[in-house]
C-alpha cells in the first residue's frame, strides 16, 4: 500500500457526500449510576478521518461501544442510514470495525490466523472467501506471513496491527480505533501512523497523541466529562492552547511551528 507522505494539512477536506455515522443527543449511564455520556451529537462523513481526543474518563471508549450496539438499546445512533438496534445488529457489526484499546482483549484466539478469520467466519462467509479475506487483511497491515504465529509471541506493535487486521478482514465501512498508539515505542508508533495514513477508509480514532492527530486527522473532536466540547479542523483546534489545557491535553510541538 502506498504511503502518502504529503501532510494532510495540505489536502482539501472533501465535500461530504453523506453521513456514514450519525449520533443525536446520546445519553448513557452505567448500571452503577455513573453518567458517562451526557448528550453527544456527532456526524461523520464517508471517507473522513476524525480524531476523538479527551482526558481519561471523558467517555471516548463508552461512545465507541455505542457505535456497534454493544452498549445502549435503541440509542440514537445510525450507521450508513441504519439505526443501531436489535434488528440491524449483525449488519451494523459488519459495517463498523471496532478495535479495542488492549490488543490482548482483541486477540483472543491461539493463532493470528484464527483471530483474523474470526470475523469473516462469523459473518457466515464461505471458507474460500475467508481465506482470501485473511490473506488480504494481513497483507494490508504488512503482516503477510504471520498467520501461523501465536498471538502471545507478538510484540505490542505487531499485536496492534493484527488487531486492526481482525476487523479489516470484515471489510467494514468505518474503522473505529480506541487509542491505537498507546503503549507503542516510537518506531512502532511511527510505522502505525504511516500505515493508518495510507488506509483509504473512514476512521474514528480516539487518542491522546496530538502529534498523531496533526499527522493524520484533518478533523478533531474534543470530549470531556461525557460531552463534546469542541469539534472542528485539527489545524485550528491544535493551535488553541487554552482549550487544550482546559481539557487536560498537552499542546504538541506542532510541525508547522518549527
Amino acid at each position: 500500500m502506498p504511503v502518502k507522505h504529503k501532510s494532510l494539512f495540505e489536502i482539501q477536506i472533501p465535500e461530504c457526500e453523506g453521513d456514514i455515522l450519525q449520533i443525536q443527543d446520546l445519553h448513557f449511564s452505567y448500571p452503577d449510576g455513573h453518567q458517562a455520556l451526557r448528550g453527544i451529537d456527532l456526524s461523520v462523513c464517508e471517507g473522513e478521518k476524525v480524531a476523538l481526543v479527551g482526558p481519561n474518563g471523558a467517555g471516548k471508549s463508552t461512545l465507541m461501544l455505542h457505535l456497534n450496539g454493544i452498549l445502549g438499546d435503541n440509542s440514537p445512533v445510525s450507521v450508513a442510514g441504519l439505526a443501531v438496534d436489535k434488528e440491524n445488529l449483525s449488519m451494523i457489526r459488519a459495517l463498523v470495525g471496532l478495535v479495542f484499546q488492549n490488543p490482548d482483549d482483541q486477540l483472543f484466539s491461539p493463532t493470528v490466523f484464527d483471530d483474523v478469520a474470526f470475523g469473516p467466519l462469523h459473518m457466515g462467509l464461505p471458507e474460500e472467501v475467508v481465506y482470501k479475506r485473511v490473506e488480504k487483511a494481513l497483507a494490508d497491515v504488512h503482516m503477510k506471513d504471520f498467520g501461523d504465529r501465536l498471538s502471545h509471541h507478538l510484540s505490542m506493535g505487531q499485536k496492534k496491527r493484527i488487531s486492526i487486521a481482525t476487523v479489516l478482514a470484515m471489510q467494514p465501512h468505518i474503522l473505529v480505533l480506541d487509542e491505537p498508539s498507546a503503549g507503542l515505542d516510537p518506531r512502532a508508533r511511527r510505522s502505525l501512523i504511516n500505515f493508518l495514513k495510507g488506509l483509504p477508509i473512514t476512521m474514528l480514532v480516539s487518542t491522546h497523541d496530538l502529534r498523531m492527530v496533526e499527522d493524520i486527522f484533518p478533523r478533531m473532536v474534543i470530549m470531556d466529562e461525557g460531552k463534546i466540547v469542541a469539534d472542528g479542523s485539527s489545524r485550528d483546534l491544535l493551535q488553541d492552547e487554552k482549550l487544550l489545557e482546559a481539557h487536560g491535553l498537552e499542546t504538541p510541538h506542532l510541525s508547522n511551528q518549527h
Binding site: L65, I70, F100, D105, F108, F118, H122, V167, M170
Partner: peptide, 10 residues
C-alpha cells in the same frame, strides 16, 4: 471485554 470484542466480530 473479550466478549465485547467477540460480539463486535459477529
Amino acid at each position: 471485554r473479550i466478549y465485547q470484542s467477540m460480539i463486535s466480530r459477529g
